[in-house]
Design a protein around this nucleic acid. Structure first.
Lengths: 248, 248
DNA sequence: TGTTGCCGTTGATCCAAGTCAACCACAAAT
DNA sequence: ATTTGTGGTTGACTTGGATCAACGGCAACA
């Protein structure tokens, strides 16, 4: 639970060590015992740096590893033949990328860095192997996958049943909550994605996103300055989601 | 419509046996070796029958097992406090239910039988245990979870980026493909869900679903008689999805 | 053989979000 | 300091799907 010193260097260069990582509580190793944790350090191979706008992997790429975000953030998206894009998620530090690839051994979406980022590469074969002996790892890995499924259901709820402003409110509250979990302010944060990407994620056009932001600002719910967001009335946002005045 | 002999009975009553099940190719055991399969028979505890409209589990229920559908079909849905419902999926024979529960040990959605149905109960603790020794089971289970994630991304694409008729076309093609995989006709099938449930799944009102069906019938794409569907021009439906005339 | 209730269809109207277009802010490049 | 380009905002107008409402088909059941 304590904040630990930064990751040690070795002669071999940057030696990864989950047991030393300060993202422990957010990432795959969460909930594992110390002895289990020691074994985990064998698991994470290399780190990989990805520049802003560059792909970590693309749809169709061979699936070989999953990735834990060490620094930075990503979006995942799916493209239709005719060019339409659907952003399926935004990921931040400690979150796991690449789970979509297990089913067919090919990645089914693109993972693009929203800023200069770094990931821990977790070779999938090794993960399966190790999780056969390390019970805590197996269990935690299953939880991570399940959590992704539950999250996806939430997005379906958003897309299928909510109005534009409700969607944006839910999005902001979700971002706020995730920043909080990482030790940042719940009330003030910087979005890494454009209005268009938010719109794609929420099933809205960028103009609609922009207008909803303006509306929230008028109503004193949030302060908006480009990508810089300040949540002024979180309860107001929550109430917006529960029951829209116009509905029914 | 059965293709194989029914499952054997034993003195103990209904003894389940994956190795004898005719859904083998569709279900969790897919791709496992014969020796692996023998061990799997320990895994599946009991069967459970669920009457039409009854829940297999509800959001908030303690998570103890996942379920393989042996006969019948289900919907899963999420409810908002204000009563709004989002159907997150329709499941048919061989498909796995309950994966949402792993993450929090509580189920996060409702699973409701669309007709009188029967499931195989797979106690989750046992599954983790066994999948630590049976490699094929471990791998297959991961694939099932990953496939669910990929499927969810497809639904997000639907909800976020497609128009009403595209959504319904995609839905019909998906149903057709799944019926085919189960040895039924690709061109003619019976939907188990109402227009309202289809609408909830697709993010549309039931009237819109009904109108889209009528439109497809006018255009000679499908024959519709209540829940009975006949696909007359599958390519036409596919083309509808690729590029909508009005778009861009 | 009604009667009841659910499910589906269809029409008329409305409105939230999309489209089109102009303009502004700001950062990077020259 | 000026240009260029990307991202964001705002306004005017259009439209796809929602809403409201009436009605029809069919199965379950008295």
């Amino acid at each position: 639970m304590q904040m630990k010193a930064s990751v040690p260097f070795t002669a071999a260069g940057l030696k990864t060590a989950c047991s030393q990582c300060n993202l422990l509580e957010l990432c795959l190793p969460f909930g594992m015992t110390d002895t289990e944790l020691d074994r985990l350090d064998e698991l994470v191979g290399a780190r990989r740096k990805i520049k802003r706008q560059q792909p970590l992997y693309r749809a169709g790429d061979l699936f070989e590893a999953i990735y834990a975000i060490r620094a930075g953030s990503f979006k995942t998206d799916v493209l239709l033949e005719d060019g339409r894009e659907q952003v399926t998620g935004f990921q931040m530090t400690g979150e796991i990328l690449g789970l979509d690839g297990i089913s067919t051994e090919l990645h089914s979406c693109n993972a693009i860095a929203l800023e200069d980022s770094e990931v821990c590469v977790i070779p999938y074969g090794k993960l399966e192997e190790l999780s056969r002996v390390v019970e805590g790892l197996q269990h935690q890995f299953h939880k991570v996958m399940s959590r992704e499924i539950v999250r996806d259901h939430g997005v379906m709820m958003l897309l299928g049943s909510m109005r534009a402003e409700e969607r944006l409110a839910a999005f902001l509250l979700n971002m706020s909550q995730r920043f909080t979990a990482r030790g940042f302010s719940a009330a003030e944060f910087h979005l890494r994605m454009t209005r268009e990407e938010i719109g794609s994620y929420l099933g809205l056009k960028l103009e609609t996103v922009s207008r909803a932001f303006s509306r929230f600002q008028e109503d004193g719910l949030v302060g908006v300055q480009q990508k810089h967001i300040r949540i002024l009335n979180g309860d107001g946002l929550k109430k917006l989601i529960q029951h829209q005045p116009g509905a029914r």
